[in-house]
Design a protein around this nucleic acid. Sequence first.
DNA 1: TGCGCATTGTGTAACGCTACACAGATATCA
DNA 2: TGATATCTGTGTAGCGTTACACAATGCGCA
Lengths: 330, 330
Amino acid sequence: MTDVARAAGVSPMTVSYTYNQPQRVSAESRAKVLDAARDLGYAGPDPSARSLRYGATRTLGVVLGEHLTYAFDDPQAVLFLAGVAEVCADRGYGLLIVPTGTGEEDRDWVVAAAVDAYVVWTTTDDDPVLAAARDTRRRVVVHSGPARPGTTVIGIDNRAAARAAGAEVFAGARHPAVLSFPVDRRRETFVRSGIDPASVAYPVTRDRLAGYRDAAVDLGIDWSEVPIGVCRTNDDGEARAVMRELLDVAPGIDAVAAMGDRLALAALREAPGRLRVVGWDDSEIARDHDLTTVAQSLREQGAACATAALGDPAPDHRDSWRLVRRASTS
Amino acid sequence: MTDVARAAGVSPMTVSYTYNQPQRVSAESRAKVLDAARDLGYAGPDPSARSLRYGATRTLGVVLGEHLTYAFDDPQAVLFLAGVAEVCADRGYGLLIVPTGTGEEDRDWVVAAAVDAYVVWTTTDDDPVLAAARDTRRRVVVHSGPARPGTTVIGIDNRAAARAAGAEVFAGARHPAVLSFPVDRRRETFVRSGIDPASVAYPVTRDRLAGYRDAAVDLGIDWSEVPIGVCRTNDDGEARAVMRELLDVAPGIDAVAAMGDRLALAALREAPGRLRVVGWDDSEIARDHDLTTVAQSLREQGAACATAALGDPAPDHRDSWRLVRRASTS
DNA sequence: TGCGCATTGTGTAACGCTACACAGATATCA
DNA sequence: TGATATCTGTGTAGCGTTACACAATGCGCA
C-alpha cells in the first residue's frame, strides 16, 4: 500500500480511503491511486491486516463433528449447511468450514481459525472441540446439543418427537425394534436389546432413543426386550445388513422405529409387507415410498443457528417438528 | 499476549514460543505462561495477527457461482465440495466458502477474503468473479472451465463424453431431443430447436451440447431440427414440465439426450416405454432406474482442484469419464 | 581451567492496515 | 469582509503477532 501511495504521489491514507470510502477522496486522486495499483499489481487491502486492525473477521466458523467430509455425505447436514450459508450470504459473512476429525489437532484448529463465532453441528457430550470453541470466547451455537453453559442450543425436541413417532409405529405391534444411529464415537455396528439411552454419547441419538423408549413404556412394552440395531451411518447398504441381523435375532419383528428415512426404507426392503415403519426427516425418499416420518427443516435450523451465532435473536426450534403419517404405519 | 507475558513474569516472545514451539521453552516457564493465560482468559495467538505476520492464511477459498446456497442444492456440487474438503482436512487447511451471487459485491468479496488460493466451481465465461479471483494474484483452479490464462482448469472432456453418450442414445432414433441445463445466467426455461453451442455461456453446458450435436451430425441428423428443452435446474418437477413442452412441439420424440440423471429420469417418466434416454453423473437414481449415463467422479475432481490450488501437481481428469450402458438405451 | 555447545530468555523490527485528529483549501453566507 | 462549514489530504499510533539475532546460563570435555 505504501508503494502504491508513493507511485500515485499520495499518502497511504489516501490509498486506504480509496478502497474503503471512495467518496472521501477526490476523483482525481482516486484515479491516480487505482492506476498505480493496477500498474503495481496491487489488488486491494490485505484481508488479514484488515481483520487485525478491524478486530473482527466477518467470517462464521462451522464445526462438523467427525471427519470433515462426513458433512457432505449426510444430506441432512448438507441441508443444515445450506441454511447457515444462506444467512452468511445475506449478511456478507464468509463461511469457514473448520477441519476436524484429525484428532488432537482439532482443538488447535478451532482456536486458531479466523472466525468471529461458531456454529457446531451436533456432536458428542465429551467433544473437546466444543470445549475449545467455547474457551476462545467466541459466541458458540450448537445444533441439537449437547447443551453447555456458555453455548446456545438450537434444534427440535428429539425426545418428544421420537415419543410421538414411537407411539405411532409401535401401536399394536407385538415385536417392535429400533434402528439407531451410532451411540458413541467409535461408530460401531451392532445389535443389542434395551440399550439405556443415558449411555449414548450423541444427544440426538440419546433423545430419540429415550423418546422411543417412552413410547414403548407408554404402550406397556418391555424396553429391555426391544432389539436395537445400531448403524454406523444413515446409509442403505449397511442398514439392510443390520436389519437382517435384527431379523436373525428376532424373526417376528413387526414394527421398526428408525432414526432416519434411509434406515426406515432399508428395514422396509428387508421385510416388505409385514412391517410398520417410521423414519425421520421427511426426505424425498420418505415421500417416494409413503413413509411415516418426523418432518423438520434442517435448513431453517441452520439459518437460525447462524443468525444466533451472529448475535441476533433466533427461534430455538424446539417445536419445529411434525409427525407425517403415511402408509408405512397404517 | 503482552498482558499474559507480564502476568507470567516473562517476555512476550516466551509466550509466543509457548504456543508455537513449546519445546523451545522450559517446562517451568511454559506452566507459568499457561497459568497466566488461563487466568486472563487468553485463548492463544490471534489468527488474524498470525496470518498477517506469517504471510499466509492456510485457508482455501471456494467460489460457487450463482447464489451461494445453490451449491448445497446441487448434489453434484456437494460431491465436488466433499472432495475439496477432504484435501483441505488432510493438509490442515481451512475451507472458506466465499459468498457470491449478491451482485456487484461479489468482486469485493473475492478480493477481500482471507484465503491463499481459490477453487472456482464452473461458471460462465464472463463471470466477473473469476477475473477478480485471478487479479488478486492468488492461485486459481477452475472446475470444468472457462479456461483462462493464469488459471488451471480441471474437469472431464464434456464434449467427448457427450459425443459418446449422444451416439449411444441417438442411434436409430428418428426424432431425437435434448434436455439441457441453462444456457446463460438468466437461467430461463424454454424449448427451441438447434441451439448453437457457441452461444452458450456455461462451458459445461456448451461442451455437452456441442458433443450431442457432434453425435447427431455423425448420424446424419439435422441439428437444426433437434428440439432442445432448457431447464433451469437439475430438478425433477421442472424437467417434467419442459419434457411435456418438448412433446407438444415434437410428439414423436423417441430419444432424449439429457445433461443430468434427474432430467433423464423426468423424460422417462413423461414418456414411459418409448424413449431411449441418457443421463449424466451416474447418480443413485441412475442406478435405481437402469439409466444409461456418463459416469464421472466429481469428488475426485474436487480433490484434484484443491490439490492443484494448494500448489501440488494434480491430474486434469479430462478422460475420467465413462459411458455406463444400461437398459434405458437398449 | 577454558573452550565450545546446547538450552533458554529477550529486544527489535516489521507484517499491512485504518481510526482519529488535525491542517489547509475552498465554498457559503450574513 | 470575516466567520463558518465543507472537502480533501496527511501523520500518528497502534491492532497482535513472530523471525531473527543476540545474550546469558549451564554443561561436557579435553
